[in-house]
Simulated assay, not measured.
Amino acid sequence: MEQLLQHLRNLGFTELESKVMVCLAQQSTQSGYEVAKRLGVSRSNVYATLQRLLTRGVVQLTPGEPARYSMLPVKELTRMIAGQIDASLSYLEQAMPSSREESPSFHIVEGERNVIELINRELDKAGEEIVAGIWREEAAWFRQKLENAEQRGVRVLWSFEGLEEDGHPGIRLLKGGISGRKFWMVIDRHWCIVGMRGDGIPAQALVTEHPLMAELLLQHFSQEIILYEMENDLGQELIRRYGQGYTRILDRYLPGIIPAD
């Protein structure tokens, strides 16, 4: 019941309007007095609510003594609401003023649900290319959306962060590392998201369309590809010359950087 009421609220109905609608749907026709009694709400509030619902066209009135009310058939109701929403969204796209910023902005998205919903919306809009770096634990969030994108012709390139197939971790660039799992994504070479989450750590992400961020992430991905190919071809030779995890190179430029344990 609560889930149904929540969806009605999401569609713009008030708490009492939602309860009255559900109450009317549970029985063919009822008077305002009967609805008020079943809900335990004052008759004046119920009659005012019924009047608003009549005005919106979601409730039908049968005149009489007393007058009786009934819900619009559910299929007719959903078609009507869908039409109203489509019309409002169409008008919004055309009429809403859009501020022109001199440079792309950055903003933060917090909470796992908000991050997942945002990325899924952007994946649905991807037209040409998706490039991503993600841990296996988070890959389940987007696997279906990525598969759907591939099926409609979008090129999808992604790498797994963290442990590799053989169990060896990547290089940790700071002693102690960062607690949590990072993820990033570039869609159509302009929309970017960089974030992290982990056990006990709420998901948080930075979102931008700044071209510099897209360039940095794509360069990072290209470097990973180059290293992957080189390590496959020259693995032992690279270890002999540069040390495990390239420590000899790292110590030369940034002493103290060590491979992950």
Rank of each mutant, 00 (worst) to 15 (best):
182 K>P: 04
207 V>I: 15
221 F>G: 00
192 C>S: 14
232 N>Y: 13
233 D>Y: 13
205 A>W: 11
200 G>V: 09
181 R>I: 03
192 C>E: 05
237 E>D: 07
211 P>N: 09
185 M>E: 05
187 I>F: 06
210 H>G: 02
179 S>D: 01
215 E>S: 02
197 R>N: 07
181 R>T: 07
235 G>T: 05
235 G>M: 15
188 D>I: 09
239 I>G: 01
216 L>T: 10
219 Q>S: 06
212 L>G: 11
195 G>Q: 04
235 G>E: 10
193 I>G: 03
204 Q>H: 02
240 R>T: 14
217 L>S: 07
203 A>I: 02
199 D>Q: 06
207 V>L: 07
187 I>G: 00
181 R>Y: 05
183 F>T: 07
196 M>V: 01
211 P>A: 11
194 V>D: 11
212 L>K: 13
187 I>R: 04
202 P>D: 06
237 E>H: 15
202 P>F: 02
180 G>C: 13
243 G>A: 09
190 H>W: 09
210 H>Y: 03
179 S>T: 03
193 I>C: 13
237 E>W: 12
203 A>P: 04
205 A>K: 06
198 G>E: 02
237 E>F: 14
227 L>N: 04
209 E>V: 12
190 H>R: 14
202 P>T: 06
225 I>L: 14
241 R>M: 13
233 D>C: 13
241 R>S: 12
209 E>A: 09
185 M>N: 12
227 L>Q: 07
201 I>N: 01
215 E>Q: 07
208 T>G: 04
197 R>Q: 07
218 L>R: 02
175 K>D: 12
227 L>K: 09
217 L>P: 09
180 G>D: 03
239 I>Q: 07
235 G>W: 12
178 I>Q: 11
221 F>H: 01
241 R>K: 15
185 M>C: 09
178 I>Y: 07
223 Q>H: 03
235 G>K: 11
201 I>Q: 01
192 C>H: 00
204 Q>N: 07
179 S>L: 08
178 I>T: 10
218 L>G: 00
235 G>C: 12
231 E>K: 15
217 L>R: 03
202 P>R: 06
181 R>K: 15
204 Q>D: 02
243 G>P: 14
229 E>I: 11
197 R>A: 00
216 L>R: 05
176 G>Q: 06
205 A>L: 00
200 G>P: 04
213 M>V: 08
206 L>M: 13
230 M>F: 10
230 M>A: 15
206 L>N: 06
